[in-house]
């Protein structure tokens, strides 16, 4: 259930990591609201907690304190099994280093999230072809990651992220490992998914050029968020 078009509602979130006896407080009482259909960029220096926040929104990690609600559902206290099931249905993830399985070809990489659904083989195949066609790779179905360029691998990664038609697309430095041209193609694709498919997208980036594609940019530094870059 969504209220007032708000898709993501993060309230008073702390995240503390332990390294031996040391406690590192990465996020401090952080609040953030992301409306449905927004293309949000998160920027900030290395170690500022951008990826940590993304992981909390995507249910890949749990906050030390505070609440994370997505589409009205509080996800920070779900069991591991329920959280996995929720991720499968609602979240698409795009990683900086693509994180494709090298032993599977493009089509089978994209098919992975669909294995968790009750879809039959032919339906899965149809959806995989549609997803790869959306990212312009219908001619690379049988290619293995090692046979694809970085840009193509990232587009396969995006196809894998959208194949289940998720509510939320979370991208962790999606252009960080790409040259400018390939990066632009990927950003163009994400923007299209946002404007034409209405996908809510959160992108973590160091690159102002990438952030410029977003409809809003938030800056994270020393565990706190702001609308303006911290000097």
């Amino acid at each position: 259930m969504r209220s007032n078009g708000l898709l993501v509602d993060v309230k008073g979130v702390d995240k503390v990591f332990r390294r031996g006896a040391e406690r590192i407080r990465v996020l401090r009482g952080l609040d953030v609201e992301i409306p449905e259909g927004e293309f949000l960029a998160l920027m900030g220096p290395s170690g500022s907690g951008k990826s940590t926040l993304l992981n909390l929104i995507g249910g890949l990690d749990r906050p030390s304190a505070g609440q994370v609600r997505v589409a009205g559902l509080r996800i920070d206290n779900l069991s591991n099994r329920k959280l996995a099931s929720w991720r499968a249905r609602h979240v698409g993830l795009v990683f900086q280093f693509y994180n494709l399985l090298p032993v599977l070809n493009a089509a089978r990489n994209v098919e992975l999230p669909l294995l968790l659904t009750g879809l039959k083989s032919k339906d899965r195949k149809r959806r995989v072809e549609t997803a790869l066609s959306l990212v312009g790779l219908s001619h690379r179905l049988k290619h293995y990651p090692r046979q694809l360029s970085g840009g193509e691998q990232q587009r396969v990664g995006i196809a894998r992220a959208i194949v289940t038609d998720p509510t939320l697309l979370l991208c962790d430095e999606p252009t960080g490992d790409l040259d400018r041209k390939s990066g632009d193609e990927v950003l163009e694709l994400l923007q299209t998914l946002n404007t034409e498919q209405g996908k809510t997208i959160v992108i973590v980036t160091h690159d102002p050029h990438a952030a410029a594609r977003a409809s809003r940019t938030l800056y994270l530094d020393r565990g706190r968020l702001s609308e303006e870059p911290v000097e």
Binding site: N80, A84, S85, R87, A88, N99, L112, P113, L116, R160
Partner: peptide, 10 residues
Amino acid sequence: VLKAVGFTDR
């Protein structure tokens, strides 16, 4: 990655 896309621990 498998877990991230929704595979359960089990």
